[in-house]
Nucleic acid binder design. Structure first.
Lengths: 208, 208
DNA sequence: CTGCAATGTGCACACTGTATACATCCACGA
DNA sequence: TCGTGGATGTATACAGTGTGCACATTGCAG
């Protein structure tokens, strides 16, 4: 039901603005999102955006929500790609590793979207529907529960373990995008990420 | 040798600007640092700052360097406060734990300075002297070497282990300051930080 | 066809960083 | 003592930003 007729009224400015903002953020980073910049990309007057968003912040938050959805899909895709011929124990830890690698690789392949996804943690602009994919945080909880059920992680270790995982993974991404790992090649960064994830998994599953 | 005479010439505007910027950053965050805002706080014309800094970015980077020094001092203080009656093995892991806790608590007590310290990783504005305390990164390297020497960490594990540590610690701070741990009480945040550091240390030192 | 609600435009305002020209002050040499 | 010149702060101006308000244009409901 898209009105593609290009009249005085744009037809679906809202979607066009979001898409233009995503393009801009991917190329120039989330910080480059400006109201005039985005509307200019669409070829429309700056104030036209105010018919669809309360202010710049609302626009950015909406775009950020979309970015978080893409991150979530990227993670889920990677989780589904795990070879299914594994025992539940090995499989669950592989899923944790895949989660971390997907997170880091999303950050390093599209840093602007990663920045947006991080910024999306504030409440959505209005009572927006929650129809998207499960948020990354919930995916992680599921993986940890799976590890506990499979017996690779002691139940006592499960409590609040998500924050240990989230810290490692988010820290890796942050160092890669904004920190001292910026200059590294993609392969080197992935190698360090694997190392950190190995250490994390060992820490979660070690006996002592 | 401070000229405190308040004439037409300020006397030591550069230091005053840096101090005002630090105050502003502590109260309103590093993002609130504006050229006009800082000069206004000192009570001076906006362009006066250009006599001491090339542009806003140079000012912020200088202030950021000072913030990183404070972070480093905060870490060193905490390291020195460790009870010296410990064996080298136990002592080295306690030092790693103290490093992480100091980092996270610095971030949660002065988020604006923490943001600045992170931003200081770009090159200093000009060929500024390196006279300050050792940068946090080097402190961490020393602790890990100490752990290896003490035998609590296998030498093979030492390689690139700093990035695993840095990820965990920086991730914790980031979640605390900008992420979903914002709403937590200080004690709760520290508890989660201890948990994550336990997992990290276990991962670094576990046998298997 | 008429009016109305939705949507996009134009203009204005306060704010930002910064360039350029000017004013003021201090130190030093005759 | 008197300049005089370099250092330092000011004044003005300009492009850029987000945003409020009035107006123009469009499509739809009656």
């Amino acid at each position: 039901m898209k009105r593609t007729s290009p009249g005085y009224h744009h037809g679906n400015l809202r979607s066009a603005l979001i898409e233009a903002a995503l393009d801009l953020a991917r190329d120039k980073g989330a910080g480059a999102l400006g109201l005039r910049e985005v509307t200019r990309a669409v070829g429309v007057s700056p104030n036209a955006a105010y018919r669809h968003f309360a202010d710049l912040r609302a626009l950015v938050l909406t775009v950020a929500l979309e970015a978080r959805h893409r991150l979530a899909r990227s993670i889920v895709d990677r989780l589904d790609a795990i070879t299914p011929g594994l025992g539940p124990a090995r499989r669950s830890t592989e899923r944790l590793r895949a989660f971390g690698l997907a997170y880091v690789e999303f950050a390093q392949s599209t840093p602007g979207w990663y920045e947006l996804a991080c910024a999306s943690q504030e409440a959505p602009p209005d009572g927006v529907e929650e129809g998207g994919p499960p948020p990354p945080h919930l995916i992680l909880l599921g993986i940890l529960d799976e590890m506990t059920r499979a017996g690779v992680m002691a139940p006592a270790r499960r409590t609040d373990a998500e924050w240990s995982c989230w810290s490692t993974v988010h820290g890796l991404a942050e160092l890669r995008v904004h920190g001292p790992l910026q200059a590294l090649s993609g392969e080197e960064a992935v190698r360090l990420a694997r190392l950190a994830l190995d250490t994390l998994i060992r820490g979660l599953t070690a006996k002592s």
